[in-house]
Structures are given as structure tokens and as C-alpha cells.
């Protein structure tokens, strides 16, 4: 079997993502299997949702019996970090129609970085390359989720404590946010608001209340520091 130059490039480029997505997807699958649901649901989540942190959060929300509204708000805010960097891709996506829709659906952190960071030789069509990279990455993820969930339902050894992958993942994302932002204030504010809500207001509704409090604080801060410049002309 010989690979076309396009497919060879796609496989070579996506190899690091494979090494990331297979084990991380499998970790999600094992965690998901703790909930006691059929492993096919883990496959369905990889197929239809396809979001690393989002799927881990979903396990936590399902385990805590969160309401649908709580799930929607939490996921929306978790993903809010993505909203801004998609803008830089608009002019670099040649595909149209279903190909474009699928590419937007599959725009994970890793796919984004491969698409923006890989220099293409002249004989490679950018649209085809982007589409295949997106599809191959999702395939790695679905295989990881499925294997993990299936293995998790078969395993004999004790998985007690494995739910720690969730806070561990969020801790890693927190550190990445700090490296990016280099400003300690929002982290201290969040710690104060989060613990305050949990200990003083409500344990069950902690996430929603703390997020709303943070959002109000940010808006007030924005209103307060914004320079007034109305009657200019």
C-alpha cells in the first residue's frame, strides 16, 4: 500500500496528536465507565461532542446529577476560551459547505495548532489537508474514548480515586491560563468567590452562583475603569 503525498503528510503531522488523544480519550472512557453506563455512550460523546475538557466536565456533572441548565452554562463557559481564537482562522479556511461546517465542529486546540502551524508544500491542497487533519484527529479521539470505556467496564483492578483526573485536568488548564495571562488577580478573586460560595452560600448550586458572581464582578470592574468620552465632537 502506498500513501499519496497528502495522506502521508496528514499522518506524519497528526502523529503527536495521536499520542495525546489516545491516552487522554482512554482516560475519559475509564472515568465515564465509572458512571455505569454502556461504553457506546462514550463513543457517542467522542463522535457528537468531541471536546476534551468538555467531556471530562460532563462526567463530573453527570456524577453530581446536575440539571440540564447547569450543564449548558458550565460547558458554555468552559468553552468560552475558544471563542476568541477562531477569528484568526476565518480567512485561512478555503473549504465551503459541509466541509467547512465539519471543520468548525472539529476545531479543537490541537487541530487548530496543526492547521495554523504546518507549512504546506505547493503540491498539497490546503482545504483537503485541513479537512483530513480534522477527521484523523477526531478518529484518534473516538478510538481512545471507546477503548477506555470498554476497558473500564472489563477491568478487575480497583479504580477508586480515578475521578481525580478531573481536578487534575482543570489544574493543568489553570496553570496554562496563568502562563498565558501572567496576572494573579483573577485567580485570587476566583479562589475567594469559589470558596466563599461553597462554604457560605450553597454547596449544590456552587458552580452557577460563583460564575454569576464572577461575571458581575468583571462587568462592574469594566464599568468602573472605562474612560468616559461621550461629548467628544
Amino acid at each position: 500500500m502506498t500513501l499519496s503525498p497528502l495522506n502521508a503528510l496528514v499522518l506524519r503531522t497528526s502523529l503527536p496528536v495521536m499520542f495525546g488523544y489516545l491516552p487522554l480519550g482512554a482516560a475519559f472512557g475509564v472515568l465515564f465507565s465509572e458512571l455505569g453506563y454502556h461504553w457506546l455512550y462514550a463513543t457517542a460523546m467522542g463522535l457528537f461532542i468531541y471536546a476534551g475538557a468538555g467531556q471530562f466536565l460532563a462526567v463530573g456533572l453527570l456524577a453530581n446529577q446536575a440539571t440540564l441548565a447547569e450543564m449548558a452554562v458550565a460547558t458554555l463557559l468552559l468553552n468560552s476560551r475558544h471563542i476568541f481564537y477562531g477569528l484568526s482562522l476565518i480567512s485561512r479556511m478555503p473549504n465551503r459547505g459541509w466541509r467547512r461546517l465539519y471543520q468548525i465542529f472539529g476545531l479543537t486546540d490541537e487541530t487548530y495548532s496543526l492547521i495554523t502551524a504546518t507549512p504546506l508544500p505547493a503540491n498539497i491542497d490546503p482545504g483537503q489537508f485541513q479537512l483530513r487533519i480534522t477527521a484523523v484527529n477526531q478518529l484518534y479521539w473516538i478510538i481512545g474514548c471507546t477503548l477506555g470505556a470498554w476497558l473500564g467496564s472489563q477491568l478487575e483492578f480497583s479504580t477508586a480515586g480515578i475521578a481525580f483526573v478531573l481536578p487534575a485536568l482543570f489544574m493543568v488548564l489553570t496553570i496554562e491560563q496563568y502562563k498565558h495571562l501572567r496576572d494573579i488577580r483573577p485567580f485570587i478573586a476566583a479562589l475567594t468567590i469559589g470558596l466563599g460560595t461553597l462554604l457560605l452560600i450553597s454547596r449544590e448550586q456552587m458552580l452557577l452562583i460563583a460564575i454569576l458572581l464572577s461575571l458581575s464582578a468583571l462587568m462592574m470592574q469594566y464599568a468602573a475603569r472605562r474612560p468616559r468620552k461621550e461629548p467628544d465632537a
Partner: peptide
């Protein structure tokens, strides 16, 4: 919001995991 909300949400999610 795009600058300060994501780090706040991450910290809240760490705390939420241990609610």
C-alpha cells in the same frame, strides 16, 4: 471578559470538583 473569564472558570472548576 475573554481575557479574565477563562482563568476564573478554570479555578472554579477545580473547586467544583471537590464540592
Amino acid at each position: 471578559l475573554g481575557r479574565f473569564l477563562p482563568p476564573i472558570v478554570m479555578v472554579l472548576l477545580v473547586i467544583y470538583s471537590f464540592k
